[in-house]
Structure formats: C-alpha cells, structure tokens
Design a binder for these strands. Structure first.
Length: 470
RNA sequence: GGCGCGAUGGCAGAGUGGUCAUGCAGCGGACUGCAACUCCGUUAACGCCGGUUCGAUUCCGACUCGCGCCUCCA
C-alpha cells in the first residue's frame, strides 16, 4: 500500500488516485533565466525517482512539469545580455535538458511553457473576474482578491489577518488589499507583452500554473509537487485561483522536496551560495551526484559538500565492485528469479521501503544488504549470483542508479595530465613479469607507484584488475 | 511576530514503545608473497528536563540549539 506525505494534511496517508491505476502529476519547474543549480537537480531527481517507481509498480503516470519562460528576472537578464527573451529562454531550456539528461532524469511527459498558454491564462483570469475573485486595477494590472477566497492559507496554515499585519509587501495603491497578488501585469516600455481585454501585458507567476495544469491534467488532479520554497505563496495562490475558478479541489496530494544546504544555509539564488549542476558535473560522475541526492529522504534537507559527494562515490564503488565480473544476461529475464530464491524477499523489502513515502535511504540499505549477499554468492554459486545481481540492477534502475558498466565506472575515464589506461595496463604487465620471477620488491614498487597516482590494483585468480580510487 | 521542520554512534543516514538499520571510518580475524577486493567478528547513539507506561531514543509537555517559509528563489 503506497503511502505519501501530504503537505496539505501534514501527514502520511494512503495514496488513491482519481482514476484507478492512473496518476496525474504536476510539478512546478524552472524559471529559465540561468543555469540550474543542485537545488533544482534535487527536485528533478526526486520526481524522476517517484515517476520511475510508480511506473515500475504498474501505475500509468502522466507527469507534467512546466517551464516559466517569461517573468521579471528573465526580462531583466535578457536585457543585460543584450538578447531577446526568447533567445535567453531557449538557451537555458537547452542547458536544463543537457543537465537532466546527464543526471539520468527522464523527461516529463509534457513540458508546457507559459508563453504557449496565454489564451488559457486569459480565459482563467476572465472567469475569476466574472466570479468576483479578481479585478482590473487602475494601473492596468489585474489582481486576485485574496480575502474573497475563504479558504486562503489552508495549505500552509496561514490566516489572512496575520498575513496582513505581518505583511512585508509594499502597499500598492492600486490594490484593494496588500495581500492581493497579480494575475496580469501591465506592460512596461520595452517589455514583451500580449494583448488582453485589460490591456497589453503578461501573466503573473502563479496564474500560469493554474492554467497549464488545468489544460494538461484537468480541474482536479492527483499530485502537485515542487521545491521547498513553493508552498507559500506560490502553491497557496494556485489553490486560490484554481479552486475559485473551477469550483472544485485543485490537487489531492501536495509533495515538496527538501532544501539543499551549504554550511547549514539553504542553497539559493538570493544568497548566492549555489553550485550549478554543470559545475559539479565537471568534477563528479553524474551518477555520484544522483546518488548523493537519492541517499537522503526527499523531504529532509541535504548538506552539500565535497565530502558528501566523495562519500557517495565510495558507496557506489561498493556496488560496482560487487557487480564487476558478474556476467549478466543482455536482457531482463524473469526466469532468472529461479536462480536465487532470496531475490524476491529483497525485492519485497525494497518495495516496502519505497511504498512508505518513497523512502530511498531505506531502499538503498536493502540494496546494500543484497550486495553483501551477492559477494558471498559469487564464491559459491554462479547462477545464484547472476540472479541476485540482475535483481540489484533492476531495483537500482528504479532509482535511476547502477546503469553503467561496472568496470568502466571503477576505472573512470582518462583525464588530461593523469596516467591513462594504456600506460596502466603496461605497468601491470611489467609487474606481473616481476611477480612471476618472485621479484616482489620490484612488483611492489610498481604497485606503489600506481597507487600514488590513484590507481589501485587487485590480484585474483583471473589476473590483475585495477580501478581508480575516488 | 505568524506558520512549519529538525536534533540518532567519529561521520552520513533510516527506524522502532521492550530484539539487526545501512554505508563510510575504527578495531580483531580470514583470504593474499604482501596488498587490494571480499568475507567473518567487533566497538559505538538516540539534545536537555519533566510526564504517561511494567518499560521510551520512539508517545505527551516545557526548554535549548539549528533550519525553512512569510519579498524573487527548487
């Protein structure tokens, strides 16, 4: 039984989709004015793992993640760069796709862009005005009338009076109330804009998600997700807009990923303490980064540091050491399960962990137990080892992990300025010759020399293999 | 000020009202020419103070500390 923590109710509850077997999920995506950082990567990987798992358990998932391709920051940045909004956003969308491809994040089923849904946005605003939940103001903006929506604040337990008194928002004369937020922003000179019944302008941030989710998934859908800083005000405002306009529940389950921290502070654009995905990928294998993110529960914070990345690398090495040398069949084969009865029990425990609000750390601990068993089986039963190893690969695949050739992962790619594979192989041959002559002084000298360059040798009955240490 | 979250062994990180997390590191063995890989064994924890209970790291309350949202931010 799948249980998911719901931000709305603040507790875990059994998950039940609107339509049996079908899950409609909307996740707030990126505002594309800069390269994605590790915090973005976390949300991407988190919902990628969730989608993969749900599909592995035979749910049909329609995963929609939007792209915000027009807003203040984009306009500002495009202007600074001397390029058009479209040039900037196209560039950043391409970069985002590169980053997520590297991390093994599967593309969402739909990636709607705000600028491609202006008609739906205008229609939604019209409905809100008709129903009295929104009003065009004297300055050309259209605002949402927050106090008209009785349930405002239900997602994050805010009450309107507290919000009003604690409001840090500058009072805008055009607004009826400081809490009101903008649905349609009147155009300023030199900005991109679209025509509307209320004058030229562009959509406010919150309305696009209400419009696009309605367009892609309907008035009510199963899961709405996003990053840690979105519940208030973004998601609160989405609820206000959609439920007022559509007259029904917006999303049944709200899921929010935890923050990535640096030195105990949230990694964020405004603090300037962020590391872009491409920066990190320049130093670490993408799978190491993915493992670093997956080994902590999705709702907890993660502290970003070089040490944690290195630790993630060491943990992956244990998996690949175990997998190395097991000759797996080319394609998945159910009959393999017969080779080792214990595989099924591990699988059940893995599912049990994932069914409990996607507990990836616990699921990974099961994989480690499987590795321990695998290492033992390798010494006793080839067929059982193959069966268990293929199960490890299958389950890890649900997390998007262990998809590389083990030997290639362990050896790593040749790098400029470091000893290359051919040179290593040559030294190993020299060492083996020395060993054959029982000239251990010489053979140890070669091994030590390689170790100094980060190359570790491993002798076995089959010969000498090597890997680069992390 | 309002609304939330967290505090677990040297580190990372799950979890549970009474018995094992898991990984890294450490220690002792096995394997090895010596190592590496691997295996076996092992050390070690539940912020502080009360309460409930036969029993609490786990439930309840207070406290301390840390963090997030309340302005754009995943």
């Amino acid at each position: 039984m799948l249980q998911i923590y719901n931000t709305l109710t603040k507790q875990k509850a059994p998950f039940k989709p609107l339509v049996e077997g079908q899950i409609n999920m909307y996740v707030c995506g990126i505002t594309v004015y800069d390269y994605c950082h590790i915090g973005h990567a976390r949300v991407m990987v988190c919902f990628d793992v969730i989608t993969r798992y749900l599909r592995a358990r035979n749910w049909r998932v329609n995963y929609v993640r939007n792209i915000t391709d027009v807003d203040d920051k984009i306009i500002k940045r495009a202007h600074e760069n001397g390029e058009t909004v479209e040039q900037l956003t196209e560039r950043m969308i391409a970069a985002m796709h590169e980053d997520e491809d590297a991390l093994g994040v599967l593309r969402p089923d739909q990636e709607p862009k705000a600028t491609a849904h202006i008609d739906e946005i205008l229609a939604l605003i019209s409905t809100l005005i008709e129903k009295g939940f929104a009003y065009p103001a004297s300055n050309g903006d259209v605002y949402y009338r927050v106090e008209r929506f009785a349930e405002y604040g239900k997602l994050t337990n805010q009450n309107v009076d507290e919000l009003r008194s604690g409001s840090r928002v500058e009072v805008d004369e055009a607004k009826e109330s400081p809490l009101d937020f903008v649905l349609w922003k009147a155009v300023k000179p030199g900005e991109v804009s679209w025509e509307s019944p209320w004058g030229a302008g562009r959509p406010g941030w919150h309305i696009e998600c209400s419009a696009m989710s309605k367009c892609c998934l309907g008035d009510t859908f199963d899961i709405h997700g996003g990053g840690p800083d979105l519940p208030f005000p973004h998601h609160e405002n989405e609820i206000a807009q959609s439920e007022a306009a559509n007259g029904c529940t917006y999303a049944n389950h709200w899921m929010h990923a935890g923050p990535v921290r640096v030195n105990s502070e949230k990694m964020s654009k405004s603090l300037g303490n962020f590391f872009t995905i491409r920066d990190v990928l320049a130093k670490y294998d993408p799978e190491v980064v993915r493992f670093f993110l997956a080994r902590v529960h999705y709702r907890s914070y993660i502290d970003y540091s070089e040490d944690s990345l290195k630790e993630a690398r060491v943990m992956l090495e244990r998996f690949y050491q175990a997998l190395n040398g097991v000759s797996l069949p080319k394609s998945a084969d159910e009959s393999l399960d017969a080779g080792y009865e214990g595989a099924k029990a591990f699988e059940l425990r893995f599912y049990e962990a994932m069914d409990d609000d996607f507990n990836t750390p616990k699921a990974i601990s099961v994989l480690f137990e499987m590795v321990n068993e695998l290492n033992k089986l390798k010494k006793t039963s080839e067929s059982a080892a193959v069966a268990l190893a293929s199960k490890v690969l299958e389950l890890a695949g649900i997390l998007g992990l262990l998809q590389q050739n083990p030997d290639a992962f362990l050896k790593g790619a040749d790098k400029e300025g470091e000893i290359n594979a051919a040179a290593i192989e040559q030294l190993i041959e020299q060492r083996n010759a020395a060993k054959a002559n029982k000239d251990y002084a010489q053979s140890d000298k070669i091994r030590d020399a390689l170790a100094e360059q980060g190359v570790i040798l491993k002798d076995s009955r089959e010969g000498t293999s090597w890997f680069r240490e992390s």
